[in-house]
Design a protein around this nucleic acid. Structure first.
Lengths: 204, 204
DNA sequence: ATTAATTTTGACCAACTGGTTAAACCAATT
DNA sequence: AATTGGTTTAACCAGTTGGTCAAAATTAAT
């Protein structure tokens, strides 16, 4: 029986993901996870020896999701005019579907900074190649000297911050969930235009 | 005796600020705050009845710092060409000096979403006037239709996210504290250029 | 059917949490 | 010297936390 989707171990991980994503390591309670999974607390310790173990399973999974495709896309061969809209469409939609992940990752690092020691090397992530590619493309396609690292961070900022600050933004501009959804969908193409126009602006 | 700077009450608030900023409400331990303040735990409850009380004192202070001058600046009468660099210089430098505050505020809201119910009205903050002003200036000074709300969020994103993700960025690009400091100082003018160039790019 | 291995459970625990209480301290007033 | 008021302390508490343990239930193998 390969009931991977209904087995206890899987259900525990699912429940842990849900609770950790919303509350973080410190805020999460083991009891809440077992309740969510509908199992006995001891069973949780049977599969995942302790809280840290269970957390790591969730953290690694989420970090991988958040970081994996980014550099692939930037290393690809499309011109920036297509690459940037392509990336924003993919990444912003991903973030909207997994809106808890950015806060979860950043919060985890604030709680325990050691968590990112060697994390990029462990995940086989190196910014060197994609940043060089970006640098080259900026020069060739727009003939301008922009620091590619700053430009890259700008892109991530425009994608991630609005997701993290969602409820703050909703409150500030008096938007309910429905309006927020519209707003964030609209942002995808608008942010593309914004980024490409910024490159245009450097030209003269 | 107006020993405001050495009195117990003041020292407790200072210690609370330090601990809450780094650990958040859930992560902070009352014991750690009293240790940091060098006083007995009961004394803390003598001045601030409970944890929530003490936390609110810190939260309100920090939220006020983070949000107060923003809208003043945007409502002022400078042209965007000066206003944007002026704002970035002021705000990014403020964030570098208080790098814990953005995460602290956002985290506090994740922990207890009610915290922002009415927070803007309580602090007398309304985005209406500054956003209208921004809209008008974008049209008059750059003759382009940009959604001012999106543009405003873009500015905040470019300022705040890099501060929140500082250790992640340092790790990714292999920057130590010294290099990070240089990088963030360089970002101030670069982000100004970036924003102003984006407006230029819309023109044609 | 009996054994063996795996999975699940309830009862329990030591450590820690925010918070209370009553007594001690101390400066100022009488 | 005694009283008063605010300040500070040590000892203590009830509830919660992550985690353990041995027994029970279930499944697989002989």
């Amino acid at each position: 029986m390969d009931n991977k989707e209904s087995g206890s171990e899987f259900r525990i991980l699912e429940a842990a993901r849900k609770v950790f994503h919303q509350k973080g390591f410190e805020g999460a309670r083991m009891q809440e996870i077992t309740d969510e999974a509908g199992i006995n607390k001891s069973l949780l310790h049977y599969y995942y020896r302790n809280k840290e173990n269970l957390f790591e399973a969730v953290f690694n999974e989420s970090f991988s999701q958040l970081s994996s495709r980014i550099f692939e896309i930037f290393t690809s061969d499309l011109p920036l005019k297509e690459k940037i809209p392509g990336f924003l469409s993919y990444y912003m939609n991903f973030l909207l579907d997994h809106s808890y992940i950015p806060w979860f990752i950043i919060n985890s690092i604030y709680e325990k900074p050691d968590r990112i020691k060697n994390i990029f090397t462990n995940f086989g992530i190196s910014p060197k190649e994609p940043i060089e590619k970006l640098h080259k493309q900026l020069l060739e396609e727009y003939v301008v000297e922009i620091d590619p690292v700053n430009f890259f961070i700008n892109i991530l900022s425009l994608c991630i911050f609005p997701v993290i600050a969602r409820s703050l933004i909703g409150q500030l501009f008096g938007m309910d969930e429905k309006k927020l959804k519209e707003f964030y969908n609209g942002r995808i193409t608008k942010t593309s235009e914004f980024l490409l126009n910024s490159l245009q602006g450097y030209k003269k």
